[in-house]
Simulated assay, not measured.
Amino acid sequence: MSIPRGSVLVTGFAASWTWILGAALAALVPGILVLVWPHETLHILAVLIGLYLLITGGFRFVTAFSREEHEERLPRLIIAVILVLAGVLCLRNPLQTIAALSLIVGVVWLVSGMLTAYTALVGRDLPHRGFVLGAAVLGIVAGIVVLALPAQSAVVLTRLLGLWLVLIGLAELMVAVALRSALREAR
């Protein structure tokens, strides 16, 4: 069984240290930008969400009229109008968008933490029950903090994302350099 030439070529590119270097830079550069300008990053994110909602609403509006079934048209038009209005609101006040997203994250963390705590308390034979309960408490506390301080939490979460991207980028950079050295030694 022979391997197709194209797959050998792709495998060769994938094993190249420059691709790993590219992946490192793709994580490192945005990570640094997010750490340097967290507020601007949040603003850009809110604008992108607003544009996404506007464009999606426009597409939904057009597709509502492309259907033959008239009974489906009204719900599709309502969804399109809601998406367009949400997009306009996001673009009108991006910081409210970020606060709303933070509130959603806070609610999700709080509710999932409460449900996880319930599971840990009820499930007497649950493996690692203490760890699960600890994670639940962490989720509950994080949810409460985010709900109490949504705008500030968004900035903190943005900085954590930036730090995470920088750490991933640095790790991939080290892998790329190590692979480059190994390839040079192999030659």
Rank of each mutant, 00 (worst) to 15 (best):
V156D: 08
T158M: 05
L28Q: 11
L157A: 14
G12Q: 15
A148E: 06
L183Q: 12
L33I: 04
L91M: 01
T97E: 01
L54N: 00
V175C: 03
F65M: 01
L179A: 13
L21V: 05
L101S: 08
S153T: 05
H70N: 11
I32F: 10
L28Y: 07
I104E: 08
V156S: 09
F65R: 00
L165E: 13
A100T: 11
G143D: 09
A136P: 12
A186P: 04
M1L: 09
G113H: 10
A120G: 03
L95S: 13
S16I: 06
W19F: 10
S112T: 13
A142I: 07
H128W: 05
V8Q: 12
A176K: 09
E172T: 05
T97M: 04
L149D: 12
S2A: 09
H128C: 07
T116D: 01
L179M: 15
L110P: 04
A178Q: 08
I49V: 13
V177P: 06
V122C: 09
I44A: 05
P127C: 06
G87Q: 00
L133W: 00
E68A: 11
L45Q: 10
V132A: 14
V155W: 02
G57P: 06
L74H: 07
A142L: 15
L83M: 07
E185N: 02
